[in-house]
Nucleic acid binder design. Structure first.
Lengths: 118, 118
DNA sequence: AAATAGATATTGTGCATCCAATATCGTATG
DNA sequence: CATACGATATTGGATGCACAATATCTATTT
């Protein structure tokens, strides 16, 4: 754990998180995770990338992230609005509906793995 | 919930499980899930497919499943042995080591989603 | 021996996700 | 105005996971 203080930014505590395993590929579920994050609060792209890095130890590549956001918006699950430099993304009612079903499916498929590890 | 009785087979209770959501793609983590299943008991291919169907409502296609099993074996994470018609897969010590790390990573990335939904 | 059934396995195609590298856009600073 | 910086965005290429369709292999049944 370390404290990172960039000039003109709020100092931030960085917590080491465990790295992706060597044994098996852990890709997938990016749009699911983004939708889940946006149920908490509206966020802009780079903020979403940081949040994902906290969980998966690595930021998604811009070439991965932005097309995914565009696609979610096209489906009407999120909507965006410019605020200065940043483009904020916010979950829509359809998105909330969707993530409820997706979470249920996710728990059915993987829930026991989480419970086993605690 | 329904009871399915095939001729010459033990009657089996089929529990309806929720379908894949429309909102976002839920692919991925197949080798992770297989490795997790094999920590419980040794299984043959078709058995693994059934177990996955219980969780994800759909059997993985043979063209998905068997190459994945072959790859896991090539990496030394599982090993196989013929028993009559069936080919049983069993997790190796390296596989057990790997799945421990993978589970930890998985919980870090997605654990809160499961806990939020309960 | 032939037919059937269950299990294993391959081929070819499509898509989401991942990367590295690069470009652009908006805002603040010198 | 020029520079720098943070954020947004695209391009091109690789890989894993998904499908449909088909083939093979083993054991059982007729």
């Amino acid at each position: 754990m370390s404290i990172v203080a960039k000039k003109g930014k709020v100092p931030r505590i960085e917590i080491e998180c465990c790295q992706p395993p060597a044994c098996c590929d852990m890709r997938g579920l990016l749009s699911f995770l983004i939708l889940h994050l946006l149920t908490k609060k509206k966020m802009y792209g780079a903020e979403i990338a940081d949040e994902i890095a906290l969980r998966k130890a690595e930021k998604p590549n811009p070439g991965t992230l932005y097309p995914t956001l565009k696609q979610l918006e096209k489906k009407g699950l999120i909507e965006s609005s410019r605020e200065g430099n940043a483009k904020y993304y916010k979950i829509t009612p359809a998105g909330k509906e969707g993530i409820l079903q997706a979470r249920e499916f996710f728990v059915q498929a993987y829930g026991d793995i989480v419970l086993d590890s605690m």
